[in-house]
Amino acid sequence: MSAITRDEVAHLARLSRLALSDEELDHFAAQLDVIIGAVARVAEVAADDIPPTSHALPLANVYRPDEVRPGLTPEQALSGAPAVEDGRFRVPRILGEEA
């Protein structure tokens, strides 16, 4: 049995906002099946009573001093934008036609 199906890969691609071609889906499904089969080995490690580690450093709630300092100017913030209008980011429509 395969670890992951082509349909599952297509679903994950949609969730990840990746418009993959049929060819890419075929290719990735086969490769991901091998990769997931290999990484599934972590399940064989008996670790029921082991706490998870999300981060190597035991840090929590680190704050920097609350000081006012200059941020980016509007020009700087917009300097890499794909489209700009009236000093703002211009984006494609977010709501459907009926909205």
């Binding site: 890969v9 990840s16 990746l18 418009a19 290719h27 490769q31």
Partner: peptide, 20 residues
């Protein structure tokens, strides 16, 4: 469409694997 055109195969594989 942008992410499909802008990312290469290894990045796509890892995004899908991570999402999974």
């Amino acid at each position: 469409l942008t992410r499909a055109a802008g990312f290469g195969p290894e990045v796509k594989r890892r995004i899908i694997l991570g999402t999974y």
